[in-house]
Write a protein that binds this DNA or RNA. Sequence first.
DNA 1: GAGTGGTCTAGACCACTGT
DNA 2: CAGTGGTCTAGACCACTCC
Lengths: 276, 276
Amino acid sequence: MSGRDWRPRYVQVAEDLRERIASGELASGSVLPGELELAERYHLSRTSVRNAIRQLREWGLVRVERGRGTYVRAPRERVTRYNAERYQWEKDRVRKSEEERRSTGGVEFDTGLTVADLTFHAEYGELRADEDLAGAFGAPVGTRLLRRVYWTRPGTDTAPLSLARSYLPYDLAARNPELLDAGNEPWPGGTQHQLATVGVEVDRIEERVTARPPLPDEADRLDVEPGVSVLAVRRVSLDVEGRVVEVVDAVYPGDRIELVYPIQLRRWNGAGERWS
Amino acid sequence: MSGRDWRPRYVQVAEDLRERIASGELASGSVLPGELELAERYHLSRTSVRNAIRQLREWGLVRVERGRGTYVRAPRERVTRYNAERYQWEKDRVRKSEEERRSTGGVEFDTGLTVADLTFHAEYGELRADEDLAGAFGAPVGTRLLRRVYWTRPGTDTAPLSLARSYLPYDLAARNPELLDAGNEPWPGGTQHQLATVGVEVDRIEERVTARPPLPDEADRLDVEPGVSVLAVRRVSLDVEGRVVEVVDAVYPGDRIELVYPIQLRRWNGAGERWS
DNA sequence: GAGTGGTCTAGACCACTGT
DNA sequence: CAGTGGTCTAGACCACTCC
């Protein structure tokens, strides 16, 4: 370094380590030197080194494991989700044969993987709508809901790609008792097919996207460092009569997922140069 | 507290302060006691108190100002952006009179505010496409681009709602020299009208949404604490011939913005109960 | 038992803000 | 000037992992 560097020392250390990771000197998967050793090397206290490491965690560059060490993360490839196309694809699939439906699920749509490569988890439960959910359903507080929790991940990876809480009106789901049994998951054809078995055609889906730091349990399950961001998506499905038939709160690791939304505008159709 | 609380002390302090803020005991806008005083009150070291305050910052509950103090944030109302409707509305407006266009801009569409209530900033510059932008435009690296930086905020608030970098192919923009002059901003009618003056009809817009921690300068400008998340949106506009006519990289404070995307599915149209 | 990261202490000096 | 938050030190004890 030539001249003074006025940034705090711990920022300089973080920068230095960042460069070493980027250059491959610290290969992904390898262990960083222990905090005491880093402190010695950089002539700093352990506290300052820890501050530097906190930066690296927030940047998503390292993963810290208690009692073991600090590891360089594999550069994460982003998975791109085309939700609009995906839901249409799921809807089209509802009317295909069970065999066809069984062969692929929604995650494969994103990743190209087959069912065998995926770890899938589902938990079912019951719930009374709180104010928030009641508002989403346009139903009274206390309405009985079927609550389902999912997480999916590519079998090769250790990191789930999504964590989703789905809510269905209990009375609606109960029309087909099979829908109340978590043992039937993964359901061939997905939620839209499940809804179809009780006579519901999904017509319109609205996604509300926000970003926030992960809650502690989400950080665990999605394997994101606390301090990294997650995308929180609330997905509301409406049937052809405009009734809310499902509400999903999904959480994605912000650094591994990219959500793509296409917006088609109406054409002017040969109106020529009418602008002023 | 009854029984042992095994969480770290600083987490307990953060929780305690969180509850005091939620209950209104610490009103929004008010100053927290200094770190030394908090340390004394909780019988902790200043370091531990600082850890607690770091949590509150990540939760977006307090804002820290150096040399002044730590302030309780106003609970942030979320602004909801309906981008699909918004772009259609902007497109429709292209063919309205200049007077009509002049009266409202895009931000008002979201907030209901009028132009007078808004602070608007634009900077123009030139740029050669790097690999990333060249890929987005489907053009060679080094292609000349017009680069425009915007930020907007409600005049009453101190916090910008968005920070956007827009890129246009320079040769396209140069067909109307007025488009090269930042002095013409805010342009009545927005980008779609600007493009219309050089003969472009925008047909399709694609938004790619990700989440990440803010860069230091973004944290400054958007007034989010470092550690809080931002929504990063890349918006690509295509004209009726499928050419990329604009690329925008927009950043929104994740805790103040909600992006809504409607997804309309094709109807089955009286096909009846064909599911198996 | 040795090594790791997580928490915590009791100091210190600094730059910045207000009066 | 006094008070604030930002950085930094040189220790300490703990729970956890691995051998």
